[in-house]
Design a protein around this nucleic acid. Structure first.
Length: 903
RNA sequence: GCCUCAGUGGCGAAAUGGUAGACGCAGUGGACUUAAAAUCCACCGUGGUAAAACACGUGCCGGUUCGAGUCCGGCCUGAGGCACCA
């Protein structure tokens, strides 16, 4: 029997070690390990779809796994786990398609994905996994909602504080009728109900957050039209945190691109509010970033939704109606073509006293600033355009204030303006008319007053409903009404709960209970972002406090049964300065995922984290200290003459042309997808080459943050590398270990130590591709050495195996055990460098004449500058170029370069 | 329009301002083999040469420097983000 390292042997080895890891709990990480720095490495957790994985999906997972294993071998206590994001639209739509309950299909998908990922040898802690749909998880999502609901933003402290503190500051509110008090508090709560313009998407049958609507005014999912509608919905006051979300970007190690995207999304801009007197005793408040240009204002513009229109003396109703009915996409298309109407009103410029006609125009948006502007056509392109169309005079020559500050202080002096800051960020619309999401822990009494449920009543589980499909509409029917599926179960919706003598909802079994009252549950559900807002905290105590079967309290945890996360665990794993790299922000040490979440998930999670910190539940300032965006694996797809996709697998290339069944087809490059017939799965690759080979290939394709084309035929290179590693120490005939107990010679030691230094450096900075190339160089060197000298020393073989371990863990475990070790290689120390062997006897450097390399100098690195110069001059080809020339200057950088400047 | 980022062999890509193309795929030639596969060795930017030498070469044009893929200025192309945000 052959003991060649081929796919079938690789698969045997892989199964053997995966079983071993399972049985030995190898990947379980302990809290509070003495003498090791904690280090949290995680992926943006997957959304398990019915389609299964293609080779692009695990790229990030393999990268974090390699990193986690590397740091584990470098004396860090690594936490590396994976949960599943499982609420949300795709699961629901898949369920509707298959006619099965989303819980069933979702759980099947999770099982399937677990199986696919396990095959890759990912070292995820099995005790820290979960799905966002687990009742024990939902409970805490609802619990966090409660914290946000029960908080307000203290402007003085610039912090979230419990709403009870606000009540203490306003004893007079106690006397108010409950409905009135509820309305007042609603104005303060960080989670609140509002009746305001929201994004209504009839095609999906739900409202959407601004972040979920594209620039074209379509839903990000499904690409359906979205309409602005006044609807009663839940929102979160993320705008109160705009400044902190913006400022704190500075303390985190994220790609500049993502920081910039968040910065732009928050859209802070400094300027001034200016108040203009309007006839009839009205006031017009505008926002401008250029108060210094106020003397050049020749008119004012208000948005079609502006309240001042009520007093318009000209009839502008038709214009306003048309403008309001325009969808975002129409507005987008009409951008540039300025339209508007004179309102008949005039505003008085407080500085020049000039009377400015007030126009209504849809180029001014109600949602930004005050929904009104002063127009300075001389200094603003848009205003100029408008002025030109409507023949409004333009004041080309006017006196500007020398600075914005000057203008503001002048305005403040006369009492008609003040400096201010506005943000583009809007509050986060938080309710959805879906079935497959977390129910709100909210009930309403007979007066429609909202009450939040007691902790003991959590989790509020999803009811069975006759039909979980969302009520969707003709995508263009803007007047349709949202209709939450949870409303279809009256038995669930209407609930009897204990109340005190004031009719206020209280805890089950409370002393003050005087009886039960009928309440109606909130039937909206939370957006799928809710679960992903805090899952990184769940890894710290994954099955804690959820009353789930098999729930185990974390070892050594200080129990805080009333909080989402054990505070001491949070401080240990995520706290500020919890290790030498994380900095003052604290948070997850490494977070890897696609750039598509730049402003959605990442912004929402930061917001929740800040609220939790203000309330004292976490010590870190930010959830994710270092963010890394991996690239995408892309693929070629092929279409025939009809434009129909043909299986990419069966396409052959000849002279740069592509053929399928003898017919020429055309190539395109892009995503991998079922419909494009170009999917390659990790399962296939593992079967064809082995999981270790697949891992090595994915890591060697190029830098992690770059997108790259998939090329199955190139995978063989990774397999050849592992085969050489195998052959270096195993006899392919007998399968026996074949190394010597001699010690390595000097040359080998030098090569080895240089390789260790290089691999360590590359791995530390997340460049597995170059780490692998250094490893290949080492193995190629040793392969040649073995041919000349016979068996490789065991001490050398061990170093090779250790360095390979993070990248190809199964084969490394196998070789490690064959080398006579009984422990798993996962916690063995990564090889250390013997500095003495980093210095060479001789080095070879380039010698230039006038900056052109003419020869190579082989010399001792300890040679003097003089020797470098003299020896360089003697080189034949250098001598040729120096002959008959005058040396003006000799540049000698010892160990680097010699350059003669001649004339 | 504004803001990021990126352009290097046939392909994926390497290069603290110091010998451009490491490493891998594909390709060419050779060794081994009855043969093939596998393995091992050599070559592999373009022109040029018997081989060298030599010339050119990191999107384009300039600049700084003894020396530029790398730094600076100006373009071109591509990708991504934002976009009537006052």
């Amino acid at each position: 029997m052959s003991h060649k390292y081929d796919a079938s042997l690789a698969n045997k080895i892989e199964q053997k070690w995966q079983k071993y890891w399972d049985e030995h709990g190898t990947f379980i990480s302990k809290d509070y390990v003495v003498g090791k720095e904690p280090f949290v490495v995680m992926d943006m957790f997957p959304y398990p779809s019915g389609a299964g994985l293609h080779v692009g999906h695990p790229l990030g997972y393999i990268a974090t796994d390699v990193t986690a294993r590397f740091w584990r071998m470098n004396n860090k206590n690594v936490l590396h786990a994976l949960g599943y994001d499982a609420f949300g639209l795709p699961a629901e739509q898949y369920a509707i398609k298959t006619g099965q309950h989303p819980r069933k299909t979702t759980e099947e998908n999770i099982q399937n994905m677990r199986k696919q990922l396990k095959m890759l040898g990912l070292a995820h802690d099995p005790t820290r996994t979960f799905a966002t749909i687990d009742p024990g998880y939902v409970k805490w999502t609802q619990w966090i909602f409660k914290q946000i609901y029960n908080s307000y933003f203290d402007e003085e402290l610039q912090k979230a504080r419990p709403i009870s503190e606000l009540l203490e500051k306003h004893p007079e509110w106690k006397e108010l009728p409950k409905k009135e008090l509820a309305d007042i508090l609603n104005e303060f709560r960080l989670a609140y109900i509002s009746y305001s313009p929201v994004n209504w998407c009839p095609g999906l049958g739900t409202v959407l957050a601004n972040e979920e609507v594209t620039a074209e005014g379509k839903s990000e999912r499904g690409n359906f039209p979205v309409f602005k509608r006044n609807l009663k919905q839940w929102s979160m006051r993320i705008t109160k945190f705009a400044d902190r979300l913006d400022d704190d970007l500075e303390m985190i190690d994220w790609p500049e691109k993502v920081k910039m995207m968040q910065h732009n999304w928050i859209g802070k801009s400094q300027g001034a509010f200016i108040e203009f007197d309007v006839d009839g005793g009205h006031k017009l408040k505008v926002f401008t970033t250029r108060p210094d240009t106020i003397r050049g204002a020749t008119f004012a513009v208000i948005a079609p939704e502006h309240p001042l229109l009520e007093f318009a003396t000209e009839d502008v109703t038709q214009y306003v109606e048309v403008a309001k009915s325009k969808s975002a996409i129409e507005r987008q298309q009409d951008a540039g073509k300025k339209t508007g109407e004179f309102t008949g009103l005039f505003a008085v410029n407080p500085i020049t006293k000039r009377k400015l006609p007030i126009y209504v125009a849809d180029y001014v948006l109600m949602g930004y600033g005050t929904g009104a502007i002063m127009a300075v056509p001389a200094d603003d392109k848009r205003d100029e355009e408008f002025a030109t169309i409507y023949n409004i005079p333009i004041e080309w020559d006017y006196q500007k204030y020398s600075t914005v500050e000057d203008a503001i202080s002048e305005l403040e002096k006369i009492g008609c303006g003040e400096g201010t800051t506005t943000f583009r960020l809007r509050d986060w619309l938080f309710s959805r008319q879906r079935y497959w999401g977390e129910p709100f822990p909210i009930v309403y009494d007979e007066d429609g007053v909202a009450f939040v449920l007691d902790d003991s009543m959590l989790p509020v589980a999803l009811p069975e409903v006759p039909d979980f499909a969302p009520k969707s509409f003709d995508p263009t029917d803007a007047d349709s009404e949202p209709e939450p599926p949870l409303g279809r179960n009256d038995a669930w919706k209407v609930v009897e709960l204990p109340v005190d003598k004031n009719g206020t909802l209280i805890a089950e079994g409370s002393q003050e209970a005087v009886g039960q009252k009928t309440f109606t549950r909130e039937t909206n559900t939370m957006p799928n972002w809710a679960g992903s807002c805090w899952y990184y905290l769940r890894y710290l105590n994954a099955s804690w406090g959820d009353e789930m079967p098999g729930c185990v309290a974390p070892e050594n945890a200080e129990h805080q049964p009333n909080a989402v996360v054990d505070k001491s665990l949070e401080e240990y794993w995520l706290g500020p300065e919890h290790n030498s790299t994380v900095g003052a922000s604290g948070g997850v040490d490494l977070y890897v995922g696609g750039v598509e979440h730049a402003v959605l998930h990442l912004l929402y999670a930061r917001f929740w984290h800040k609220v939790l910190r203000d309330l004292g539940y976490v010590s870190s300032l930010e959830p994710f200290h270092k963010l890394f965006n991996q690239g995408y694996v892309q693929a070629f797809a092929y279409t025939d003459s009809r434009g129909v996709y043909v299986p990419a697998n069966d396409v052959t290339e000849q002279d740069g042309k592509f053929f399928y069944k003898g017919q020429e087809v055309s190539q395109e490059y892009g995503k991998m997808g079922k419909s494009l017939l170009n999917v390659v799965t990790p399962d296939d690759m593992a079967k064809q080459f082995g999981a270790d080979t697949f891992r090595i290939y994915e890591m060697s394709m190029g830098p992690l943050d770059l997108s790259r084309p998939w090329e199955t035929r190139a995978v063989i290179g990774a397999q050849r590398y592992l085969q050489r590693v195998w052959r270096l120490m195993i006899d392919e005939e007998s399968g026996e270990l074949n190394v010597s107990d001699k010690s390595a010679d000097e040359e080998t030691k030098r090569f080895l130590n240089k390789s260790i230094a290089a691999v360590k450096a590359e791995m530390s900075s997340m460049r597995p591709n170059t780490a692998i190339s250094k490893l290949i160089e080492l193995v190629n060197f040793l392969t040649q050495w073995k041919q000349k000298n016979g068996m490789v020393p065991a001490e050398v073989a061990e170093v090779v195996v250790k360095m390979t371990a993070p990248l190809a863990p199964h084969i490394s475990e196998e070789l490690w055990s064959k080398l006579g070790h009984t422990d798993s290689i996962i916690c063995v120390d990564f090889p250390s460098v013997d500095e003495a062997y980093l210095v060479d006897d001789v080095i070879s450097i380039g010698v230039q004449v006038n900056g052109k390399v003419r020869d190579t100098l082989t010399i001792s690195p300890s040679a003097t500058q003089e020797q470098f110069e003299q020896e360089a001059k003697k080189l034949p080809n250098v001598a040729v170029h120096l002959e008959g020339k005058q040396i003006l200057k000799s540049i000698v950088v010892p160990g680097r370069i010699v350059n003669f400047v001649v004339k």
